[in-house]
Amino acid sequence: MAARSASPAPAAAQRRSRLTPEREREIYGAVLDLVREDGYEALTMDAVASRTKSSKATLYRQWENKPNLVACALRADQRVTLADIDTGTLAGDLHEMRRRVGCDVDRDTELLSGLGHAMQRDTELERTVRAVLIEPELQSLDGLLRRAVVRGEVAEGNPALEFVPHLMLGAMVAQKIIDGREADPAYLERYVDAVVLPALLTG
């Protein structure tokens, strides 16, 4: 399995914040509320400053630009992470992963869908969200799969390793399109057992 090199997080995400955690949460909440209300394209730093009674100078000093502010707000709001999953077996890890994803799959669907469309048109937003939000989770998934290889559960050269993120995301997208409903925990459990684990354990 090829190692995935994470994109460096934007400088503002790495800089030590001068704001209190409570103030950061307030700003992040306002940012996501504004995106829900008017969409990403209509969001402005002026609107965030007005909603949070902040100065634009403070916002730019902390986050540099709108894409980074939105990406950091999404990261702070993220309830599901793969970073600490390590049950000791591949099956256990994948089922813990699908449990976490399944519990959060219908949360803020409209917000995330709208941002997904915006990312297709805004390369800076796409790059920043990938660096701040997507790449850390892909790194965690790579680590999960690498441990399965080290334990001898999965062959080093199994070609399915490359496609595990696509398999998991594809399950959720396909269920919505084909069956007209979100991928619930029972569906994801059957999918992991019928598709993902066989692909990894027999390759």
Score class of each variant (00 low, 15 high):
M1S: 03
S5A: 14
A6K: 04
R15M: 07
R16S: 11
R16M: 12
L19R: 09
R25A: 11
I27G: 06
G29P: 05
A30I: 02
A30C: 04
E41T: 06
E41D: 15
A47V: 10
V48T: 06
S50P: 01
S50L: 08
R51T: 08
T52W: 00
K53I: 04
S54C: 10
K56R: 14
L59P: 06
R61P: 06
E64D: 06
P67I: 01
L69D: 04
L69V: 05
D77A: 13
Q78M: 10
Q78N: 12
L82A: 08
D84V: 01
I85K: 10
I85M: 11
T89W: 11
L94R: 00
E96S: 15
R98Q: 15
R98K: 15
R99C: 05
R100P: 02
C103M: 13
R107D: 05
T109P: 06
E110C: 05
S113F: 13
G116T: 14
D122S: 04
T123W: 12
E124D: 14
V129G: 03
R130N: 13
R130A: 12
I134M: 11
Q139I: 06
L141E: 05
R146E: 07
V149Y: 00
E153R: 03
E156D: 13
G157T: 15
N158C: 11
P159D: 04
L161Q: 03
E162A: 12
P165T: 02
P165F: 00
Q175W: 05
G180I: 00
G180A: 12
D184S: 10
D184W: 10
P185Y: 03
P185I: 08
A186P: 01
E189I: 12
R190E: 14
R190M: 14
Y191M: 07
V192C: 08
D193I: 11
V196Y: 02
L201F: 02
L201A: 09
